[in-house]
Amino acid sequence: MRGGVVSAAVIALAMTGCGGNEPQFEGTGEQHEAHHEAPAHHAEGAPHHAEAAPSGPRPTRVMDDGARLFGAELGEAPLVALSEITASPDRYAGQVVRTEGTIERVCQAMGCWMELRGENAPAVRVPMAGHAFFLPRDVAGRAATIEGRVAVQALSPDMRAHLESEGALATASSLSIDATGVVVR
């Protein structure tokens, strides 16, 4: 932390919302540092963003083929084409699915959300399990496989404005997939 001073806000962030899963960053050894006072992302009391060290979060594991896993290991959820989910979101609401696509954009504040686009499908918001883990901010354009719970809930105007201030474009849709694990290739 700058000057070795740890603010009460950072301590509160470490003790809330992330379920005790602090982000792991390479480089300076710093965990994270608050960067703005924007609305919480997913729920009342969810943490604000924090600034990642320049090298970004460490993957949970690196696979033999060089792919990097962030968050939890992918489970046995059925593989569903993103185009099927976007065509019938209510059919999948509440279900845990595995899907694939190309990362179109990533939260540039911290890596706590991405937008994933599949073949013949619009981009879908993918938050990272309520800030339980983060993606590197430079993975746009990469292929990804995700696993998470499908949600169909419109964003509040404040949340929409907050996400758009971070570069999000897929904010008009009420569809999102709350990722518990992401494999970046």
Results as ranks from 00 to 15, higher is better:
6 V>A: 09
8 A>K: 10
9 A>H: 07
11 I>V: 15
14 A>I: 00
14 A>R: 08
16 T>S: 09
18 C>E: 05
18 C>P: 00
20 G>Q: 10
21 N>M: 14
23 P>F: 04
25 F>M: 12
26 E>V: 12
27 G>Q: 05
28 T>E: 06
30 E>L: 12
31 Q>E: 05
31 Q>H: 03
33 E>R: 07
34 A>F: 12
35 H>A: 05
35 H>I: 15
35 H>V: 15
38 A>T: 12
39 P>G: 11
41 H>P: 09
42 H>W: 08
42 H>V: 14
43 A>T: 11
43 A>M: 14
44 E>F: 14
45 G>C: 14
46 A>C: 15
47 P>R: 07
49 H>W: 13
50 A>H: 10
51 E>S: 12
51 E>W: 04
52 A>L: 12
53 A>K: 04
53 A>I: 04
55 S>V: 10
57 P>W: 01
59 P>H: 06
61 R>F: 06
61 R>N: 02
63 M>I: 02
65 D>A: 08
68 R>S: 09
68 R>Q: 13
72 A>W: 10
72 A>Q: 10
81 A>Y: 06
83 S>D: 10
83 S>A: 15
84 E>Y: 04
84 E>V: 04
84 E>P: 00
85 I>K: 03
86 T>D: 05
88 S>G: 04
91 R>G: 03
94 G>R: 07
94 G>I: 01
96 V>E: 09
98 R>W: 02
98 R>S: 11
99 T>A: 03
99 T>M: 03
100 E>F: 05
100 E>L: 08
101 G>C: 09
101 G>K: 11
101 G>W: 02
101 G>P: 00
101 G>L: 06
102 T>I: 15
103 I>M: 00
105 R>Q: 08
105 R>G: 12
106 V>C: 09
107 C>G: 06
107 C>N: 08
108 Q>G: 13
109 A>P: 03
111 G>I: 11
112 C>W: 06
115 E>D: 06
115 E>V: 13
115 E>I: 06
117 R>M: 14
117 R>G: 05
119 E>R: 09
119 E>G: 07
119 E>M: 08
120 N>T: 05
121 A>Q: 03
121 A>G: 04
121 A>P: 08
122 P>A: 08
123 A>R: 15
125 R>P: 03
127 P>W: 01
129 A>C: 14
129 A>L: 15
129 A>G: 01
130 G>T: 07
132 A>H: 13
133 F>C: 04
136 P>F: 11
137 R>Q: 13
138 D>H: 12
139 V>Q: 09
140 A>D: 10
141 G>S: 07
141 G>H: 06
141 G>Q: 05
144 A>F: 06
151 A>T: 15
153 Q>F: 02
153 Q>C: 02
155 L>G: 04
156 S>R: 11
157 P>H: 05
158 D>P: 07
159 M>Y: 04
160 R>K: 15
162 H>K: 14
164 E>A: 13
166 E>M: 14
167 G>L: 10
170 A>C: 14
172 A>E: 15
173 S>V: 00
173 S>R: 10
174 S>P: 15
174 S>F: 00
174 S>Q: 01
176 S>A: 13
176 S>R: 14
177 I>M: 02
177 I>D: 00
178 D>Q: 13
178 D>M: 12
180 T>E: 11
181 G>K: 13
182 V>I: 15
183 V>K: 03
184 V>I: 15
184 V>M: 07
184 V>A: 00
